[in-house]
Design a protein around this nucleic acid. Structure first.
Lengths: 220, 220
DNA sequence: CGAACCATGATTGTATACAACGATTGAAGA
DNA sequence: TCTTCAATCGTTGTATACAATCATGGTTCG
């Protein structure tokens, strides 16, 4: 059996992402402990972990609340990703092994296929593949600090739901970006990798902006 | 009395920074609990907190070890700061209140004075003032994400000791940078703020590079 | 009627006991 | 001599009991 603290962590994280625990709702340790079948001690650890990842906010003696995301929060996340992920991509271009690159390619192609097939549940699978791709690329950057910092930006609940705002056209483009990133890594070209990654993030950022009609309203 | 978990946190953090717990040394919960006079439960919370800030690395069933910093780690920190802090400075230029700016100015001037007076213990005070300045500026950026991420980069133990590598000339310059940053905020000029901050970080990064003889060896 | 104030209940914070796990050491066998 | 295995011990992981704290609602006094 997995460790108790992980069990609680997974449960809460899943429920935050799927909306069972809506934004601004209060989480009591006892309720989580009962739901996950562990004691309060590992629950507290899980909540602290979730806090360091930006999922919840715990206040002294008042417990944890699910953080509420505003549009400006989302934009802020993309701005910071726009600074850090190109750097991560450049590092990855210099450090990824062949095996790493193959794995990234597999992820990118799987995502591309999902965007084309559009079978039931493809949105969830695309979201998962997208997260995996960015996480794997982060791994290839071989940077302790980035590995601590970026998961919070990649796996934020709002960010993971952002795909629902994409048109089919935009989903395809996003997958193509991933494929081009892999190409840049294969070419061992840090600048190319950084440039296409920057493009990728900026394109995503637009989806987070309040008014989404500014781009591509003619095509979609 | 402060909360038990904070007590343990402060103790361990201080001991890591002052070298009582050297890099790569193992920290047992019991030893910390005895030293700080609290039980193991809050100690565990403190260690987890310290992990999320990059001070220690805890491994399952094997406890925590103080992270060991290499030269490349230091460079990595400055590279990331070189990306994030100019952005933070730009945001601060748009968001800082007059009171914020006055406080920053006071910190910058105090640091300048310390570099000129050179009274006993000035190095420690400069280090503290420097941390305060960057933390306050971060505060003015009004970014939840940056506030979570950056303390780890600003308060890393190695970074705080880096001042010992500065020549007098470089200490003065560093203080001057801070003063100019305040001027940029006062002018509400995000680009200026970002530019001088970038300069400030890059100048610091050079100190972290293995071979420090490349700059200013004639003057110093 | 309103505001300040205590009593109460619920929830978080801490301590301690116990369980589970891993490293280490020593002996037995090849 | 080297390897393997098992027992032991120290350490971490978890559960539970208790203490401290906060939100609440009702009560009293102005």
């Amino acid at each position: 059996m997995a460790k108790a603290s992980e069990k609680a962590y997974e449960l809460v994280r899943r429920r935050i992402i799927d909306g069972t625990y809506p934004p601004a709702s209060r989480l009591t340790e006892k309720e989580i402990a009962d739901s996950s079948g562990v004691s309060r001690t590992p629950v507290r650890e899980a909540l602290q972990q979730l806090q360091s990842e930006g999922f919840v906010q715990v206040t002294a003696n008042q417990g944890a609340v699910v953080v509420d995301w505003t549009a400006s929060d989302a934009v802020e996340v993309y701005e910071i990703r726009g600074l850090l992920e190109p750097y991560a991509a450049a590092r990855a271009a210099e450090r990824a092994t062949i095996a790493d690159i193959e794995e990234l390619q597999a992820l990118a192609e799987a995502q591309k296929n999902e965007t084309e097939s559009r079978e039931p549940g493809h949105m969830e699978r695309i979201g998962a593949l997208n997260s995996q791709f960015h996480r794997k690329l982060l791994d290839c950057a071989r940077s302790t600090r980035l590995s601590i910092v970026m998961p919070m930006l990649i796996e934020a609940p709002l960010i993971m739901r952002m795909f629902t705002r994409y048109s089919d056209r935009q989903l395809v483009r996003s997958a193509e970006h991933h494929i081009e990133i892999v190409a840049a890594l294969r070419a061992r070209d840090p600048e190319w990798a950084a440039a296409i990654m920057r493009t990728h993030i900026y394109a995503a950022r637009t989806r987070a902006l309040p008014d989404q009609s500014r781009e591509e309203h003619l095509q979609d």
